[in-house]
Nucleic acid binder design. Structure first.
Lengths: 207, 207, 207, 207
DNA sequence: AATGAATGAGTTTTCATTCAT
DNA sequence: AATGAATGAAAACTCATTCAT
């Protein structure tokens, strides 16, 4: 599909990828301009469409590329041998913040993808997004020590509540950061806040 | 501000409002076309801009209109005298689903508003959105019977976890519904699922 | 033609005239907006077109109105019994500046008229403008004391050179004032400069 | 800046330039329609904006282009070694008329530029215009034989009066020509008329 | 006389995409 | 592979003018 593109020398590939990610992350799918992308990447108009047939394909490629990259780094760093669920999810929170710090554009892009509801893209993406969420969920739950949880509650519900809590917590923080975009996220405060929720959830769901 | 518009006969107002909501709900702010709106509403291009100076004002008007409408119906139906938090939040879930069934377009529009990240709108809306969320939150917590909760956990954390759980639950259901839009939401199943979470949360957070 | 309008009570007439003059003076014929005029005048859209069939007619009316007003004041103040040409033209310069100070909007409007070359207006106005220039010229020359001029040069050429000199002088000053619009015209400096040209021209054209 | 455009083949460049000059000359900046320009030039709407980012840039380009063209031809033809001021200015008058005859559209366009007062353009152009006037003035006066003039009058005033006289003379002729545009300018009559003013001015300002 | 809702052709500008070179 | 000129539909918005009330 994108074989032609992947045969390019790495430096040019990167120039194009970075330009495109930056544009999409900043403006969302609809408003992103292929004009700006080629200008920033320093290539010609025709070339972009030579490699990626159209805007949508480019976006799809970028999504896969970014997802792959982030997921790889994520699973490289996380210790799936750690069987205590809370310890594992605490790791996940920390790693996500590290990745956000190292790849801010890519992270913003993925975030946009998950928010963007542009009619053009919806059809192709909804399924893809949901699958990814499911896979991640499954991986995060994989091989955890179930014996630590209360046995009088369906484990699956407990895990969902815990996961949702931390997802909502970071969503809220990101929303706050958007409102005062100059300050960005206060990682330390988030960490402290997260710890408090860990305590609560451990208390009520561990036996 | 929109006095001129509100003096129109109701039927025409509705035609315009419905056409606009439909377009914005389907395509989001940026891609929504004022051309399509006037075509659907059966009015001239000039007229739309006679009433609403520009696209942004129209969007703002629609948001206020929809929010007002939904909020009114919501607070009309919900019994804020009910002091048991779970009973109250269970009511909320049910009412939201009823409203979604009765005003699907308006609901989708409001949802779009909360997702839409168009650069054009961001500035004006982020604050507005956050305030509304805060207000709603506050109202849902207002005057509840705090004595029922465990006293060894900060109440504020308990309430957040409960609220987040039901928010995520409905988000997930809506996402699923989007994937197979023909079937829509299976209200009964959601209701049953919600009940199970009520049980879990009552068990762990009530004393 | 404009009988209907002239039957209005004076106060309303003035509101409309002033609003229109202001708008045309500021933006020129093409860009001037009838919308702005009615808003500023506090009348309805329809009414403006009831009195003046269309924009062009309104402009024409205003031109006649302003020209009449300025010309009347001008010829009231100038002393046509003064037979010395230089004294008379010096008076004209002073009076013009006084009028500019008293009726800045009207003056700017007339100036615009003489500059404006909007295709819409051209046909109707060119003749009108030229006639006015001719009439004014004739009046300024009327009954002057010809005996003071050198008899070896055609008087008509002398008068033209003198008139042109002062016209160009004020054009230059106005152009300068436009470049630094905050300071406006420095009347005193212009007056001094004009005096110097009087001296030169007297020296070479009086015998 | 306009490199892309200047790389086009000359024939297409000319088609676009001529179409644009014609439109701007006829209607002035505000009313000129880019739609008409592309139609007349036989190119697509997008292309015009590919070469010139917007209407204002196009206008600016045309002004520079036209000014350059006319100025070059003018200074090619005028003999700046001629030190007699009157002979030199007589040359100028003749050359201007020749240019007007050869490039009527370009001349009309430049004239429009100097009259146009569109708010959009004012800021950028006023300075530009004034500078050009200053430069031209300076060149016309450069290296003239000052010894021929009367020494009892400030030379600068003499030169201004002479220049203004011929400027006004041609302005008047052009205004007359506009009123009966079919006949155009009667160059011979203007020439004869100009000669008479030369005589007068020589008589009074040469010693 | 007076209103102001309504019109719709018009404006400039953008954009993804194509194609000859 | 690479260029970039070229397209033309579509966008938001304006405006003088009309007309039913």
């Amino acid at each position: 599909m994108f074989a032609k593109f992947l045969n390019l020398d790495k430096e040019k590939q990167d120039r194009i990828i970075n330009a495109a990610i930056k544009e999409f992350a900043q403006k969302g799918y609809d408003k992103a301009s292929t004009n700006e992308i080629v200008k920033e990447a320093g290539i010609s108009k025709g070339l972009l469409f030579h490699y990626f047939q159209n805007k949508k394909q480019l976006y799809l490629f970028l999504f896969d590329y970014c997802y792959e990259l982030i997921a790889n780094e994520f699973y490289e760093k996380i210790n799936l041998n750690e069987r205590d669920f809370f310890t594992r999810i605490r790791q996940a929170v920390v790693i996500k913040m590290e990745l956000l710090a190292v790849h801010p554009d890519i992270f913003r892009f993925l975030q946009e993808v998950f928010l963007d509801d542009s009619a053009e893209i919806k059809a192709e993406f909804e399924k893809k997004k949901q699958q990814l969420l499911d896979i991640n969920f499954a991986k995060m739950y994989e091989n955890i020590d179930k014996s630590k949880f209360r046995s009088d509650i369906a484990l699956e519900k407990i895990l969902k509540i815990i996961t949702w809590t931390f997802e909502k917590l970071s969503e809220e923080e990101m929303a706050k950061a958007k409102l005062s975009p100059k300050h960005g996220i206060d990682y330390q405060r988030v960490q402290v806040e997260a710890e408090k929720y860990f305590e609560v959830l451990t208390k009520v769901f561990y036996q």
